[in-house]
């Protein structure tokens, strides 16, 4: 998912809660939505800012690996589709930033936290996109994993977050389908094209499994987030669902999932599979993945290079406003 290792604040037992906090928890338990100006525990607010901020940053940084292929898409139609997909991701970032801002953090503050490394984005976007088949693998696997996480979040307790997720989910299935469509074409192509598709799957399989984050079944943070309904499932549940959904899709393509331990387990009604390399995951999160410096560098450069433009438009808007005020005065 797009929010990994989000530390939640709180974790109070019922006995430690104030009456106000108990009433708040009861509203959530009843399925009520919490809206921006309503009272909420400070921990709920802070945890949400962290999670939504990380989610928004992931949408924005997530444009970079795909943006890499816009000018090199194999056909004009593929180029238009990829452009539309990447533009959607910009939209997703904007919905989520706006939703986070209702909690009292400003857009500039969120940007600053991304650029300084104080806030993270999903580890998946620190991997390179080396061939056109990677556009297929990203849509199919990365958007597929994101959907796994985003669909239940439509029911999250915070109103603006829930509404943003509903909009996002409506747009995501196009993303996954266009990716799978690329994979189908590659797999029906020449042996070299099929080999490229297999290579893309090989490289994106484990990083996709990492998107859900390490097992959190014993984590207090996760338990608190789940009580607040800002996390709806454990990381393991979602990862299992993702594997079970994806394995038959790979089979249809005639591709091999790069895991020799992968097999159907009749008893649990799901696949057994190998865990990704969590040491690698923590390295990537710590900033040492293959593309961390490049991704963050591109974001900081875009922000810095755009400063004159943002300031210019503000100055223009200010002047227009002054002119209108002068005209109003003259008319009086």
């Amino acid at each position: 998912m797009y929010a990994q290792l989000v530390q939640s604040e709180g974790g109070k037992s019922r006995a430690e809660m104030t009456p106000r906090e108990i009433a708040f928890q009861e509203r959530i338990d009843r399925g009520e939505k919490i809206e921006p100006k309503e009272w909420m525990p400070e921990g709920y607010r802070k945890t949400l800012i962290r999670q939504m901020g990380q989610h928004a940053h992931s949408e924005i940084v997530g444009q970079l690996p795909e943006g890499n292929w816009i000018t090199r898409a194999p056909t004009l139609e593929r180029k238009a589709i990829l452009l539309a997909k990447v533009q959607d991701e910009a939209g997703h970032g904007l919905y989520l930033y706006s939703a986070a801002e209702t909690l009292g953090v400003s857009r500039d503050e969120l940007m600053e936290m991304l650029h300084s490394g104080k806030m993270k984005y999903s580890s998946i976007f620190n991997y390179p996109t080396l061939t056109w088949a990677d556009m297929g693998a990203v849509g199919w696997l990365v958007d597929g994993a994101a959907i796994m996480n985003q669909v239940p979040l439509q029911r999250t307790s915070y109103g603006p977050y829930s509404r943003a997720m509903i909009r996002i989910c409506k747009e995501e299935s196009f993303h996954q389908r266009q990716g799978y469509d690329i994979m189908m074409k590659m797999c029906a192509g020449t042996p070299e094209q099929k080999a490229m598709a297999q290579d893309a799957l090989n490289r994106f399989w484990y990083p996709s499994l990492m998107m859900f984050g390490p097992s959190d079944k014993d984590s207090v943070h996760s338990a608190q987030s789940m009580a607040w309904k800002i996390k709806m499932n454990t990381n393991d549940e979602l990862r299992q669902k993702f594997v079970d959904q994806t394995v038959p899709q790979a089979k249809y393509l005639g591709l091999t999932v790069p895991d020799e331990n992968l097999r159907w387990n009749e008893e649990k009604g799901g696949h057994d599979f190998s865990e990704p390399d969590w040491a690698e995951f923590f390295e990537v999160i710590a900033g040492n993945g293959p593309c961390n410096a490049e991704r963050l560098g591109a974001r900081v450069k875009a922000w810095d290079d755009g400063a004159w433009f943002r300031d210019g438009l503000m100055a223009h808007a200010g002047k227009q406003e002054e002119r209108r005020a002068a005209l109003r005065l003259a008319a009086e």
């Binding site: 706006s98 939703a99 857009r107 509404r163 438009l313 503000m314 223009h316």
Partner: peptide
């Protein structure tokens, strides 16, 4: 109401 956004002026 569908959401919000930042813009320098009404036209933008």
């Amino acid at each position: 109401h569908v959401g919000s956004l930042h813009a320098p002026d009404a036209e933008m």
